[in-house]
Design a protein around this nucleic acid. Structure first.
Lengths: 210, 210, 210, 210
DNA sequence: CATGAATGAGGGTTCATTCAT
DNA sequence: GATGAATGAACCCTCATTCAT
């Protein structure tokens, strides 16, 4: 309960200044806690980061799996793109921390998280392969296409702000269209657009960065 | 003279562990210099980072401007994409540091570098606007398309390794095709593919991260 | 609580070797504290010095003001001289640090402390002017006389040691006599000699210097 | 020759910020020399300070000895006071460095310089003893009187500036008068007022301190 | 004469973490 | 739960000094 606040403060700082540049006293102050008290809630700086990243990746995997119940490969990919973009737009700071600060995890923690991310990315790889096999997608290079599509979705964290010019659904639809165009596929739309949940760790305050 | 070595070591460390997590003694050791001697060459940690980023952004602006002498808007955009991808693939670590660690610059340094990056991005914005005006591009949203195209090019730093599976020119051509597809434009290819120079700051050793 | 100890150690070192030549680890060791723990009590080296000097000057101003309730100008001056000499003899090291190391304060801190010292010196200037006006003092140059009188009192810090050859009261009386002689005034003695308090910052150990 | 410039710069810095707080590069910059070049002229930081102090104390002893050819003990003391005040007023910064920074000398250097200062002070002690013996002086305490007289003369360095309100000779005469008053001696004036030379080490620029 | 390069030691300060209270 | 006190390690940086050129 209180832990949500802590995660929010952590993500806000980590996203803005980076994990290494964020002090534990600073985090404590942000939630009105003595730095020593933080150690009752989270086990330490590393564990805090690990918790944030794990929650994020878990949510990404769960959300993505929920989104791909469609039968049609094109719709499956469209759902994945919509989820990826939607999740990133809904949790821009958490998503960025989960990406950038993987390197700040040490040893086995990083390996564990990396395998979660691999699992997530595999969903995209599979969908793309299915589409290729079904003759629906015609990318010059399937691997590069997947990377490009995911990367451009991830980039949404850099500029999308809830309540901005574009509604989330519109952004999702646009990215679906761009992704399918990259694959030279027929336009498609998932039966229903996935609406990713806002994580506990996502700060309420808009960030100033970029 | 050995400033190139220093920049290389710095970029290697900054890309792998981040600016804040990199110690100045560590950098010195990486080039066989006492930490105090580093201060003889670079003025300090901030100045070192600033130098790296400035050199990188300068090269990006110069290279991109050289690349857009084509008359045709589609070719101009193709050239820009090819340069962007080529530069990122040739200098993946430097490019990533220049992007990620902007936040580690303080105050006016960051503002100055941000304005350089804005200048670079403006080239893409202009090319896209020209193509739209000429009726060549049909993106659902011009702004989002530009961000998506740039972002997917930037993402190349995450996976491309010189000497890997794909030749640089092939990657450039693929990205040109993907970008034009996003814009629903006719296929186009620049008169000659830009061949971005390798920066002094780009380490020779492949990175371990990601 | 043990802040007194810290101040004492600081004054002892500052008086012996000077502020700039004193290391913070050295100070910590002198009170059996890790250098980092010092920062828990005092905010830093500057703040430590500032605290010492401010306490000293506050005590000087308070003590001097308490000492000048006499009506007669000559007695007033005698009281001031007695206090000045007494304070300096009782807190020789603290007094010297407060004088010598003013220059080690930076910017506004120095200005603030200088104005406290001005306030203190003004008490002497006023007493002298009153005596002159009343025709009791006949110095060749009032300004020079004030400086001479104060300076010779300050000099007590260089040689007086509690428990030495002379009792404090005897020293005070001698200085009163010398001061009044400088002013060609009739001998006078305050109703009661001020007995300045020993500051928390005054070390117990006799100093080795000079 | 060049050495005079160096000493001047050194004294200027040492008087303003103290020996420990003055960097050797700083001194080099002040005379337009590389820090390494300083080592050709002066052997090191310690040696530089030693040279300054020794020159100063030598000049003080020589000057004082020259000044006491008078037969009459009162005139002898008057000459000494006049010299002391005159020297201090003429070389305020050098004199202060020679006094304050004795502590920055290490080991035998300090002992040697201290014995020079003792030799200088002995001249005053002797003159005072002669006067006492001759029944000319009647101080409550001869030792204290000597300290007071010397200290008030030394204090001149804190406020006297060449070209200020008072001519040097006037200051000297005033101090003679004050000193003799302290001793309850008849007014006396030396046959001729000693005119102390300006040392090579005395900076031309007026100091800002105090 | 003069200097740039180089270094080991140390400067003040902040760090994540622990623990008795 | 919560905290102030405490610490060793590390932080970036500056120091006086040396030496080949």
């Amino acid at each position: 309960m209180q832990l949500g606040q802590i995660h929010r403060a952590a993500v806000s700082c980590f996203a803005r200044k980076g994990f290494a540049a964020t002090g534990i006293r600073e985090l404590g102050a942000a939630v009105g806690l003595n730095s020593a008290t933080l150690y009752h809630y989270v086990g330490g700086k590393q564990e805090l980061l690990l918790g944030v990243i794990r929650n994020c990746l878990d949510a990404m995997i769960d959300g993505a799996q929920d989104a791909i119940e469609d039968a049609d490969p094109a719709q499956r990919l469209a759902s994945l793109v919509a989820f990826h973009v939607g999740f990133t737009a809904t949790n821009p700071q958490t998503a960025r921390v989960a990406e950038y600060e993987m390197r700040s995890l040490s040893g086995e923690h990083r390996a564990a998280m990396q395998s979660l991310r691999d699992e997530y990315e595999q969903l995209f790889t599979d969908a793309l392969a299915d589409g290729e096999r079904a003759g629906l997608f015609h990318a010059p290079d399937a691997g590069m296409a997947r990377l490009a599509i995911m990367e451009m979705g991830t980039g949404v964290a850099h500029w999308y702000r809830p309540g901005g010019r574009l509604a989330l659904a519109q952004v999702q639809l646009n990215f679906i269209q761009m992704a399918l165009r990259i694959l030279a596929a027929e336009p498609a739309v998932p039966e229903e657009l996935p609406v990713p949940a806002r994580l506990d760790s996502e700060p309420n305050d808009p960030e100033g960065a970029r």
